[in-house]
Amino acid sequence: MTEYKLVVVGAGGVGKSALTIQLIQNHFVDEYDPTIEDSYRKQVVIDGETCLLDILDTAGQEEYSAMRDQYMRTGEGFLCVFAINNTKSFEDIHHYREQIKRVKDSEDVPMVLVGNKCDLPSRTVDTKQAQDLARSYGIPFIETSAKTRQGVDDAFYTLVREIRKHKEKMSKDGKKKKKKSKTKCVIM
């Protein structure tokens, strides 16, 4: 069974824990209790493949930012979460993405942009803004509501699919490099 290491990042209060708990335990946590770091595991079937999701729910508070490099190193894919009623959390996505790329030393890291709290009427981040940002990053965008469960499975499952595509691409690139290195030079 394939294991996928997913990391949920975003500013404090955007609903990272609520999304994760909704996926794992099928219930909505409405009281806000700032996370330092929590880890969850769940076995699911995605596109006919049974897999184990190892999900790291991270601290959004700035005082825990020193811990970010460590979990970013171990993560295979990242859910970059903002709240649709919090423009600052949307603007912060850029910083999370840049930090992930720096730590992973790669421009090509599996990510999904997630606009959470889409059940709320007080939207300050337009869907088109988020779609445009995701398009500019070359990553999928999904709106979710941890409260109603809308888009929750889709967000995590899409990230797994992005990781699969990335692994497939990397193995193809690896095979191309191996083929090239088999060419021999004969000096007579």
Rank of each mutant, 00 (worst) to 15 (best):
V125G: 14
V125L: 04
V125T: 03
V125C: 06
D126E: 09
D126Q: 06
D126G: 11
D126F: 08
D126P: 03
D126R: 02
D126S: 11
D126L: 06
T127V: 12
T127I: 13
T127E: 12
T127H: 07
T127L: 12
T127G: 11
T127F: 12
T127D: 12
T127A: 10
T127K: 09
T127S: 12
T127M: 12
K128F: 10
K128P: 10
K128S: 14
K128N: 10
K128T: 13
K128W: 07
K128R: 10
K128C: 12
Q129L: 11
Q129V: 12
A130D: 03
A130F: 15
A130C: 12
A130M: 15
A130R: 02
A130Y: 15
A130K: 03
A130T: 07
A130P: 02
A130Q: 06
A130W: 15
Q131I: 05
Q131S: 11
Q131N: 06
Q131C: 04
D132Y: 02
D132E: 13
D132N: 08
D132T: 05
D132S: 07
D132G: 05
D132V: 03
D132W: 02
D132I: 03
D132C: 04
D132M: 04
L133W: 12
L133F: 13
L133D: 04
L133Q: 07
L133C: 06
L133R: 06
L133Y: 12
L133K: 07
L133P: 03
L133E: 06
A134H: 10
A134G: 05
A134L: 03
A134R: 01
A134W: 02
A134D: 03
A134T: 02
R135E: 12
R135D: 15
R135F: 02
R135N: 09
R135W: 03
R135S: 10
R135M: 13
S136G: 14
S136Q: 12
S136N: 08
S136V: 04
S136F: 06
S136R: 08
S136C: 08
Y137R: 05
Y137C: 08
Y137E: 14
Y137N: 09
Y137L: 13
Y137H: 09
Y137W: 15
G138R: 03
G138W: 00
I139S: 04
I139T: 06
I139L: 07
I139R: 01
F141W: 05
I142L: 08
T144F: 01
S145E: 08
S145H: 04
S145T: 14
S145G: 14
S145A: 04
A146I: 00
A146F: 00
A146S: 01
R149V: 12
Q150R: 11
Q150I: 15
G151S: 07
G151T: 11
V152R: 04
V152H: 09
V152N: 07
V152P: 04
V152K: 04
V152S: 04
D153W: 06
D153E: 14
D153M: 13
D153H: 12
D153C: 11
D153S: 13
D153L: 12
D154H: 09
D154E: 13
D154I: 05
D154N: 09
D154G: 05
D154F: 05
D154K: 10
D154Q: 11
D154A: 09
A155L: 05
A155S: 03
A155I: 08
A155D: 00
A155E: 00
A155N: 00
A155Y: 00
A155Q: 01
A155T: 01
F156A: 02
F156M: 07
F156Q: 00
F156I: 15
F156G: 00
F156N: 00
F156Y: 04
F156S: 01
F156C: 05
F156E: 00
Y157C: 15
Y157A: 15
Y157L: 12
Y157E: 15
Y157T: 11
Y157V: 15
Y157K: 14
Y157S: 13
Y157N: 11
T158N: 08
T158L: 08
T158D: 07
T158R: 02
T158S: 09
T158G: 04
T158A: 12
T158M: 13
T158F: 03
L159K: 00
L159F: 00
L159W: 00
L159C: 02
L159I: 09
L159T: 01
L159H: 00
L159R: 00
L159G: 00
L159E: 00
L159D: 00
L159M: 05
V160Y: 06
V160E: 01
V160I: 11
V160M: 07
V160F: 07
V160S: 02
V160G: 02
V160Q: 05
V160C: 04
E162L: 04
E162S: 03
E162M: 08
E162Q: 07
E162N: 05
E162K: 05
E162G: 03
E162W: 01
E162H: 02
E162R: 03
E162I: 01
E162Y: 01
R164G: 07
R164V: 11
K165E: 06
K165M: 06
K165F: 01
K165R: 08
K165L: 03
K165V: 08
K165T: 11
H166W: 08
H166F: 12
H166V: 10
H166E: 06
H166T: 09
H166S: 08
H166K: 08
H166Q: 05
H166R: 09
H166P: 01
H166Y: 10
H166A: 05
K167M: 02
K167R: 13
K167V: 03
K167G: 05
K167S: 05
K167H: 08
K167W: 02
K167P: 02
K167Q: 13
K167C: 02
K167T: 05
E168M: 06
E168G: 06
K169V: 15
K169C: 09
K169S: 09
M170C: 11
M170F: 06
K172P: 02
D173S: 03
D173F: 06
D173T: 05
G174S: 11
G174E: 11
K175A: 15
K175C: 15
K175F: 13
K175I: 04
K175P: 13
K176T: 09
K176Y: 13
K177A: 15
K177W: 08
K177S: 11
K178I: 09
K178G: 14
K178D: 15
K178A: 12
K178M: 14
K178L: 14
K178H: 09
K178W: 06
K178Y: 11
K178R: 05
K178Q: 11
K180R: 15
S181P: 06
K182I: 06
T183Q: 15
T183F: 00
K184L: 00
C185A: 15
V186G: 14
V186I: 02
V186L: 10
M188F: 01
M188R: 15
M188C: 02
M188T: 09
